[in-house]
């Protein structure tokens, strides 16, 4: 097991008897104290999210995560099915391993499959993805400088908050981390 003292977003670590991906890492300096790093950890098997604060410079056990390109195929009640783009091998992951990512999965979507010890354990979406707006309330006339927003439905059925000027049929770029609107695609 290798270790690192560099606790940053994107690395995977062994912690509390589980495998976790650091999905957020932020600097904290509690007033008159040393520096700490507050993280959000996503369990690679269950998608559970917890928070933990590490002391900056603390060493943690790194997990070697291999990221391979794959494609989402379909789902049933229990599982999501994917294909490895290199080997064309098909495999399934339980719903719990997909979590919120399911909001942005369309048949044929390109994803990254995360492997530990050769086994697929989780998927990762590109940080930004484009989607077609399939339903939008009519454009409301108004002062765009006030930054008003409305809710539209994208082709996966997910609802997204967007600026007032977005129309049905247009494509928009979405941040897959938090589901926020980025720009017109």
């Amino acid at each position: 097991m290798t270790s690192t003292t560099n606790i940053v977003k994107g690395i995977a670590i062994n912690f509390k008897h589980g495998s976790w991906l650091i999905s957020e890492a932020q600097f904290v300096s509690p007033g008159k104290g040393s520096a700490f790093t507050r993280t959000k950890l996503k369990n690679l098997k269950t998608d559970q999210v917890i928070e933990h604060t590490f002391r900056s410079g603390e060493s943690v056990d790194l997990i070697d995560v291999v990221r391979k390109k794959g494609q989402y195929l379909y789902k049933d009640n229990e599982n999501f099915y994917f294909m490895d783009n290199e080997t064309y091998e098909q495999f399934s992951l339980p719903k719990s391993a997909i979590g919120d990512n399911s909001r942005f999965l369309l048949d044929g979507t390109d994803v990254y499959i995360l492997h530990i010890d050769g086994n697929p354990i989780s998927v990762q979406l590109p940080p930004k993805m484009d989607f077609k707006v399939i339903q939008a309330p009519p454009g409301v006339k108004g002062d765009t400088a006030t930054g008003g927003s409305k809710e539209v439905t994208i082709e996966t059925g997910t609802k997204i908050k967007v600026p007032l000027f977005i129309k049905e049929g247009e494509s928009i770029k979405i941040n897959t981390d938090d589901g926020s609107y980025v720009s017109k695609a």
């Binding site: 104290g33 002391r55 603390e58």
Partner: peptide
């Protein structure tokens, strides 16, 4: 309680405070 990498009294204080109290 996790006090990993705490080298002095204040480190322990903050690690506990940040993980269990501040939220």
């Amino acid at each position: 309680l996790d006090i990993n990498a705490c080298h002095n009294w204040d480190d322990i204080f903050f690690k506990i405070f940040l993980n269990h109290i501040e939220k």
